[in-house]
Design a protein around this nucleic acid. Structure first.
Lengths: 104, 104
DNA sequence: AATATTGTTCGCAAAATTACGAATAGTTTT
DNA sequence: AAAACTATTCGTAATTTTGCGAACAATATT
């Protein structure tokens, strides 16, 4: 992956994580095996339409995935991309020159 | 730090990192000891007013800091918050249930 | 078949983000 | 003191984000 490509991926993931509600959703999902839309909605003080929208964005960013289990919809973390995001952020934060002992 | 507080901090940092240009700026700064506004602007294909705006946001999020070294302005990573962000993101990504071996 | 349940999509409004040129402010150099 | 240099702030326009209620779609239940 090129540097610029990595930057764009980081920005994409970061943007998806750039809202408290979405961080809360991710955290909730990360600590469940899987769960239904209703469970997520129950946790949050916002309208279901808004929850659905946040879920859509997280899904489009690739951090979560949903599958229909009629009549419910089951969401979970997208493990593959979660791992990728973790690696990208890790590498990103590690690269700081202050990690290399060259500054106070 | 409470869980919700952490979530908000993560969201705040993530939001700041949620734009390719800002990731590029952070990456550039992370690999310099320090540098001037002009150096950053030179790296980027956008107007200086826009660069300044992105820098302001990164500064307000706490990821960078700037100091006047007349007539220039010197920017650098805010090491303290960089470290905090690194720890928060690390903990966040680690918490996923898929890390704990309880799912495929 | 009618009704209920579960979520998504639509349509809208308010607010925030992004980007830029021009104007401005603060120093420094001439 | 004037001119030059560096970067921020202002004003504006276009786009995106956020949030909601209402309408809708799909399946399950009665």
């Amino acid at each position: 992956m090129t540097d610029i490509n990595k930057q764009e991926k980081i920005a994409r993931y970061a943007k998806a994580m750039g809202h408290p509600t979405r961080v809360a959703i991710l955290q909730f999902l990360a600590n469940q095996e899987t769960c239904y839309f209703g469970d997520i909605h129950e946790e949050l003080p916002i309208a279901k339409a808004t929850v659905s929208q946040h879920l859509k964005e997280l899904k489009e960013a690739g951090l979560i995935q949903g599958e229909i289990e009629a009549p419910k919809v089951k969401y979970c973390i997208n493990r593959e991309n979660w791992k990728l995001a973790q690696e990208l952020f890790n590498e990103f934060f590690e690269q700081c020159s202050c990690k290399k002992g060259c500054c106070q």
